[in-house]
Amino acid sequence: MTERRPLDDEELESLFAAARQSRPLPSSGLIERVLADSERQANAVARGAATSGRGVPDAIPETVRGIPAALGLMGAAAAGLAIGFFAALPLDGLSGVYLEVSADFSIEDIMPSFFDLMSEV
């Protein structure tokens, strides 16, 4: 059996042209299903938008969930203030150890206490 010559570009192009001429049309059922999907999607988006625009009563549960975090933050702030207020005396003892200097001065010489600052005002 002899081998046939492959189709040339012109012959292939005529095949492509024949195929291009007959673009299949979607059935009405397919278009209806596609439009129904678009409506479902639009409704879902609309529901989402309505949910995100809730009133004050709807927002209360989220506010309550935030209370523990707010209490924790307030506690941490209070602790920070207390440490800053009362820490001068312990630091006085530690400074000689860590800086390896003779303790012939107190921490108040370097950093005046809050009470001295207040009395100068």
């Binding site: 081998e3 046939r4 189709l7 292939l12």
Partner: peptide
Amino acid sequence: KRGLATQLAARRDEL
């Protein structure tokens, strides 16, 4: 395209 041309060579008369 080369693959198509080779495959369809045997169907020249039919096409």
